[in-house]
Amino acid sequence: MVIPQVVSRQRVADHGEVYTHPREVNAMLDLVRHETERIESRFLEPACGTGNFLVEIVARKLAVVKAKYAKTQLEYERYAAIAIGSVYGIELLADNVLACQQRLFLLFDQQYTQLYEARCKQACRETIRFILRRNILQGDALTLTTVAEPTEPIVFSEWSVINDGLIRRRDFKFAHLINRADSHSLLLFSGSGEETCLREPVKEYMPICLFALATQE
């Protein structure tokens, strides 16, 4: 689905909303191709709109997941969840947030259905939806707060696979994550796993099975 670059003149006037053309999106992402094709590499789009950048990043990551793990459904499901969980978006407009979440979900679900047909698990789909609700948020990247509650900080979840195949979730304030980051970088939780260990999570969760992840709502 191709999103037009301008939805309406009013939205341009009110919010400066102009979407980047796929040609430019891909040209920019090609500059960091090695990161876009690394499953665990995390990206943030601080004004994500309906997800033009995030959709292309996820498409590249899912191609890698398919190539490496498609022969084993559980491994595919686990690493597809990590790939989806590696992209983050902030957007002022509620309709754009929902559209971005839906585009990313459909990208996953089309590949998942094509690969496994009747063996697809509804619990896996619910997990992906849950991750997207945690990662694509309505907020203001300048004030670092949510739109619904302007005094509430934006909080993102970090997702990782631990040794026994369970999924670990840790929540971090966005403001804390960018204190040491390059303000021009799309990378979030940048660097190795040790880098985020230097930052204090606001909440840590017990490792849990992929298919039970949505119970941590």
Rank of each mutant, 00 (worst) to 15 (best):
M28K: 10
G49T: 10
E200I: 03
I178P: 05
S86G: 13
K203Q: 04
R60I: 06
A27C: 03
L104M: 07
R169A: 04
V202E: 14
I178A: 12
F174R: 11
G49S: 15
G165T: 09
A47L: 12
H184P: 01
Y79S: 02
A123S: 06
L198C: 13
A141F: 04
A63D: 01
N96E: 09
A63Y: 04
E126M: 07
E45F: 03
A148T: 14
I84T: 09
D109Y: 11
N26Q: 04
R133F: 14
E40T: 11
L106Y: 07
Q111A: 00
A214C: 04
R180M: 07
I178G: 09
A27Y: 10
R119W: 13
E40P: 00
R134V: 05
N26S: 06
E40L: 05
L132F: 10
L186R: 12
A181P: 13
F174W: 09
E37Q: 05
A175F: 02
Y19T: 13
L213V: 15
A13Q: 07
E24C: 15
D164F: 11
E217T: 02
R38A: 13
I154F: 11
G193W: 14
L29T: 00
S41A: 12
H21I: 05
P207H: 03
F156P: 15
D14N: 10
